[in-house]
Design a protein around this nucleic acid. Sequence first.
DNA 1: CTGATATGTTACTGGCAAGTAACACAAATA
DNA 2: TATTTGTGTTACTTGCCAGTAACATATCAG
Lengths: 120, 120
Amino acid sequence: MDPHDKSYKLDEKAFFQTIGDNTRRAILDLLAEHGELTVTQISEHFPNLVRSGISKHLMQLRKLKLVYSKKRGREQFYSLNPEVIWSVLEPWIKKYEKYWSKNLIRLKQAAEQTKQNHTE
Amino acid sequence: MDPHDKSYKLDEKAFFQTIGDNTRRAILDLLAEHGELTVTQISEHFPNLVRSGISKHLMQLRKLKLVYSKKRGREQFYSLNPEVIWSVLEPWIKKYEKYWSKNLIRLKQAAEQTKQNHTE
DNA sequence: CTGATATGTTACTGGCAAGTAACACAAATA
DNA sequence: TATTTGTGTTACTTGCCAGTAACATATCAG
């Protein structure tokens, strides 16, 4: 599966199974917090796992395009790809939106505050 | 977020693993569409699976409280519990909200339209 | 009561996925 | 050049889970 293939469509099953793993969800959290990290830097946060295992998790996240990855020298830098995460989550959420109007109103307020804080 | 903090990942893991299964996600879709269904009615939508397997899936959804269940006579009726679904999803989403302000703005609009259509 | 229907439970099996170890290879460094 | 460092790959093992079959229990119909 080519991560640069534009026609590649991420399915819900693969997505939810992927983030159903504690280690991969923790990796996404680390990337959300630190922005850009190498494999070694990520591995240092998991002293109970070997580095090659972390590398395998990162390859899965890459395949699903949940993370960006670019190589500089011999180091591979990973960072979050929130658009893809949202592109899978949003359609699934919207199927239930008729039950969730009140909750979405609350989320809307959070979004507006965020927009004020981040005028990017 | 500390990936070694055990308290934060328990519910999320079970939740994402649960909806990572195609059959269980399809069951939730059925309940979202039809409102309230018995085990037999749900099973009829899965001709390739035996009924006891569907019952096991429903028990998992019950255990996580993703569905309501009430017994009438010898029939067990299941329906969606969207509040619990959202209660797990929202905190996870919010960790990335600084990346998602634009997306949340769009979702807010959907929420407001929904509120107008369902004035409940 | 007798039998049929609706649901849940348990033991079992096959397949998949996480983790590891050992290796391969490229890039930096001495 | 030789060596170390950073990353990815492969074979292997282990544990878990979806699905099934057989059974248990409760409720309804005749």
